[in-house]
Design a protein around this nucleic acid. Structure first.
Lengths: 353, 353
DNA sequence: CTGAAAGCGCTTACAG
DNA sequence: CTGAAAGCGCTTACAG
């Protein structure tokens, strides 16, 4: 007959045992020096009474809510599950809860989302900012997850190096004419990835960027990207900045009767939920979200613990880290058929193992 | 020079104006009767001082945290973004925050996740349960989002009727041999959808179910489903219980050189993020997540407000609602080529407009 | 090793 | 219309 009928508190336990609430508190928290026998009795009674500490009482007293905020530009972003899962895990491991705030894709709502979190008394927050947005003037510790190219305090994957790996990999497969597929020219993350890909591809490779937003401005959402034409022009690989776009490329190619990877290779980024499951499975670049989350939450906790020291100064975390990305080779990439033709004027011998 | 240097509270405002905290509280909350002029002065000072009410103080006093919990079986579930976004929106509209708790796919962790939320003092929680799990004994109002077939207190989409719509639609296109694609035999949601599809297809149609988990047990994750063989056997449509599986079907068919929708139609469920963007775009069945979330949160709020009445009794919400689903017709479905052949022994004339 | 007391910030009857 | 006072549940010095 444990618990139920809510509202068991320290006083109730104290009363039941004829001791003081201070002693109960000390025993349960393991801080004050209480005799082992008493601790045992108090624990027992607490559990019999179904005691759950009041987070409000504790928060009011300690000035800490034990809750971290997670601000997202748009929960609908396909990368969000990975981020949320990693942050939640890191927070729980550190004994914190996670309050979410979604800006629903509207840039203006980001500030609202942050304010909402402040009002709920979060001890700190992780912000995944809207493209190009700067976070400032927030009255609590903040860790930003973005591209390292973004000035400010950031924990991020090394998108540029990830791109470089993709580029080198495609080059090693013999690709010499590659279409880069991006969505939005303003995205730091996308620009980093694309820059890296170009770099990895090297000087001898022709790279051309297709901006989806630009194409859609003419043909409406979901219109054709004209990929078959690219293949006809001799392009043999498509490197997208996200698996979502890679999937779009893959299916448009397949629909046009172009075989992947035999006639064209496709790569993406982020290892989204569907990437391993499509046919052929997508070669992609994965971030170590667990590590990113640990860094972000760790920086937050340090800032929170340090906040008490120098008066009431609240410092934004300043842990600029670059987390490496990992290439995941799957079926959507292969050696180009054009190897034979192009081999003579390249160093393909060295590049293709 | 507003705000900063945290820690402005009611006392500070009261002191600055030479009034009592009670008056400040009343003025700011608009409850007590305070003269309009004073209200105005108090508001002004509060905003100048950058006053943010202490949620802890309020929670401790009122016994309400103003926070709702969202328990998820696995954030990695592709449907999660829609759920989270809808719940967050509904909660924010009602003035609540949302604390997330992820069971990371482990059935045992669901209880931990719930406990974590209780310890954080949520006023109620929305639970998306793991397959077949029953939620019970939780000491706060709970709204469950699942299939209506699950006994208990549930807000759900009408999965069965959604399936029926898919079935009828495929039948109306002339399909007479349809492969149903499910993942897990134990899922109420999947069984409802499949049952509905069979029902909508009608007696004259041959329907056969492919269970992905069963197939993968033999061939490992991501192995082929043998769809080309099904097409060879005369099946002309594939109806999956999720867009994720529909995507798998679509790409496997395309990879096998089978044209969609000319040679085979494909349908899914849930209108996932990628569904509109692939080629051909997926015909799918969408739930009204906004409505589901509103119902769930609404039920929760009613339970929360009612909790004070009958002693301390905490009642689980009992709002069993069926929210209709909407068919979204896109390019992955079309009339079957076999119409001509099969027309003689069916009522295809009536069914195809 | 144990307890009495103060106080975190708020709201809510209750007086005036 | 305004204020004094109590108390939500907890933790933390401080005494004993």
């Amino acid at each position: 007959m444990a618990s139920s009928r809510l509202a068991t508190n320290l006083s109730a336990i104290a009363a039941a045992l004829g001791v003081s609430v201070a002693t109960v508190s000390n025993a349960l928290s393991g801080k004050g020096r209480v005799s082992p026998e008493l601790v045992e009795r108090i624990r027992k009674t607490a559990s019999e009474l179904g005691y759950v500490p009041s987070s409000a009482g504790r928060a009011l007293r300690t000035g800490r809510s034990g809750v971290l905020g997670l601000v997202l530009p748009d929960i609908a972003n396909p990368l969000f599950p990975q981020i949320a899962q990693a942050i939640e895990k890191a927070a729980v491991n550190a004994g914190y809860g996670v309050l979410i705030a979604d800006a629903r894709g509207e840039i203006a709502m980001q500030t609202d989302a942050i304010d909402r979190l402040i009002e709920r008394g979060v001890d700190g927050m992780v912000v995944v900012p809207r493209r190009g947005t700067r976070i400032s003037g927030v009255d609590c510790p903040v860790a930003v997850i973005d591209s390292p190219s973004t000035p400010g305090n950031t924990v991020a994957a090394d998108h540029w190096d990830g791109g470089r790996q993709v580029g080198e990999y495609l080059a090693s497969l013999g690709h010499r004419k590659v279409v880069l597929v991006g969505k939005n020219r303003d995205s730091n993350v996308q620009n980093d990835r694309l820059g890296g890909i170009r770099d990895g591809l090297g000087k001898t490779c022709l790279a051309q960027t297709l901006w989806i937003d630009g194409i859609e401005k003419g043909g409406g959402a979901g219109c054709r990207l004209g990929l078959a034409e690219k293949v006809a022009e001799g392009f043999t690989a498509f490197a997208a900045v996200s698996d979502l776009h890679a999937l779009r490329v893959l299916t448009e190619l397949q629909r046009a009767g172009i075989e992947v990877p035999e006639e064209a290779s496709v790569t993406g980024f982020d290892d989204l939920i569907f990437s391993a499951v499509v046919t052929p499975p997508l070669t992609t670049m994965r971030m170590d979200m667990g590590r990113i989350a640990d860094l972000a939450v760790g920086a937050l906790l340090r800032a929170i613990d340090g906040a008490g020291e120098n008066g009431a100064a609240v410092d934004v975390t300043a842990d600029v880290s670059k987390v490496p990305m990992a290439l995941i080779m799957r079926g959507s990439t292969g050696k180009t058929k054009h190897d034979a033709i192009e081999a003579k004027n390249t160093t393909a011998g060295e590049l293709t193992p």
